[in-house]
């Protein structure tokens, strides 16, 4: 028991193992904090900033910050909810997300969060950037229009020698996630499936396989994202 720490999320008393990250600790206590870049079992990246909470007056990402004894976390106040909504809107306007024609629609975490935060029309102007689609691999398509640069594929999709199939390219506003031309040609069926599964949006799509699950029957079509909705 000595390994447990007590902390509060929006005033609710919680308990979790010392050193666990706030997102996971919250979940154990039945509290959902949204994430996009985070994945269970993978070192957190703090890339999407959607899981931001306020601790001691400072915004911190709950996927990278461990809980500590007596910590007071503010997660669902009006301004933080609006911040998360703004971050999601920003992702929509900074790429080209045309949901009705996307294979990932209904299984897309970005779309699901858009619904969760009741995004109607983003407050920001659409940027309509010109982005490339890389279909050079025989098994997958890397569509830059939909990429949110979450790094999940970079961290998890590696060949048997541990080499990354995906990596960042350039920086700042020009940042892209690109596929290794050589390794992309040799990607295995399993790795290709995993890449599509790990992509939270529709930026990595398996070739020659579409709409196996009908729209309307997909993950978030019936079950909104976030556990307290269960």
């Amino acid at each position: 028991m000595s390994n447990l720490v007590k902390f509060k999320i929006d005033g609710t008393e919680c308990m979790a193992e010392k050193g666990s990250y706030i997102v996971d600790a919250a979940l154990e206590n039945g509290i959902y904090i949204p994430t996009l870049c985070n994945m269970p079992g993978v070192k957190p990246k703090g890339a999407c900033r959607v899981c931001s909470v306020r601790i001691n007056g400072r915004l911190m990402t709950s996927c990278t910050t461990p809980v500590s004894d007596g910590m007071e976390i503010e997660s669902n106040s009006a301004d933080i909810l609006d911040l998360r909504k703004a971050i999601i809107e920003l992702m929509f306007v900074s790429g080209n997300h045309f949901c009705p024609s996307c294979e990932k629609s209904g299984n897309c975490e970005l779309q699901a969060l858009g619904y969760r935060y009741k995004m109607m029309v983003p407050r920001f102007l659409y940027d309509f950037p010109v982005r490339k689609v890389d279909a050079s691999s025989p098994k997958i398509i890397k569509d830059q229009n939909r990429c949110i640069q979450c790094k999940r594929c970079i961290k998890t999709i590696k060949d048997e020698q541990g080499r990354s199939l995906f990596a960042f390219h350039k920086r700042g506003h020009d940042l892209e996630v690109i596929l290794d031309q050589d390794l992309g040609k040799k990607i295995t069926e399993e790795l290709a499936d995993l890449a599509m599964k790990n992509c939270p949006v529709g930026s990595i799509i398996k070739k020659e396989k579409g709409f196996e699950q009908a729209i309307g029957r997909r993950m978030y079509d019936h079950q909104p994202i976030g556990i307290e909705d269960k």
């Binding site: 900033r49 306007v93 640069q149 350039k170 920086r171």
Partner: peptide, 21 residues
Amino acid sequence: FIDESCGSCSTCRNMPHVLKN
């Protein structure tokens, strides 16, 4: 700032561009 951001945070990658526009 737009040129020099590392780009890994969604906010810093996208927002300065929106503000500049």
